[in-house]
Computed example of a mutant assay.
Amino acid sequence: MAELLVVRHGQASFGADNYDKLSEVGHEQSRLAGQALRDAGWVPDRLVTGTLERQKETLRSMGFDAAPEEHPGFNEYDFHDLLNVRFNGDVPPAVKGERKTHFRTLRETLLDWQEGGCVGAKESWADFSGRIAAAMAFATDTTARRVLVVSSGGVIGQLVATALQAPKPMMMELNLQIKNTSMTRFVFSGSRFFVSEFNATPHLAPQERAGLLTYS
Rank of each mutant, 00 (worst) to 15 (best):
V95C: 09
Q35V: 11
L59M: 09
L111G: 00
G89K: 11
V43N: 09
R38W: 00
D90H: 14
E108K: 11
V48H: 01
G63R: 07
E69W: 09
E69F: 11
L111Q: 01
G41D: 06
F79V: 07
R107P: 00
R38M: 11
L111V: 12
G116E: 09
H71F: 09
E57S: 13
A36G: 03
G34P: 03
R54W: 07
G97S: 14
K56N: 08
D65Y: 07
P93Y: 02
G41Y: 09
P93S: 12
R86M: 06
D65S: 14
P44C: 06
H80A: 11
W113E: 01
R86N: 02
A66E: 14
E69Q: 15
D90Q: 15
L37I: 12
T49C: 15
A36C: 14
P44T: 05
D78W: 07
D112C: 04
T109Y: 01
D45A: 09
G116H: 10
Y77R: 07
H71Q: 05
L47R: 10
E70Y: 03
V85R: 00
T58K: 07
R86I: 04
R104A: 15
D65P: 04
D65R: 11
M62Y: 10
E98A: 13
L37C: 09
E70V: 07
L110W: 03
H80Y: 12
E76H: 04
H102Y: 15
G117T: 00
C118D: 00
D81G: 03
L32S: 06
F87K: 10
L47P: 00
E53T: 11
D112N: 09
L83I: 04
Y77L: 07
G97Y: 12
R54N: 10
E69I: 09
L110K: 04
W113S: 02
T49W: 11
G89C: 12
L59H: 05
G73Y: 01
F79M: 03
P92A: 12
G41V: 05
P68I: 07
E108G: 02
K96F: 07
E108T: 09
L106H: 00
A66L: 08
L82F: 06
F103Q: 05
E70I: 00
Q114L: 03
T58F: 05
T109M: 04
P44E: 02
E115Q: 15
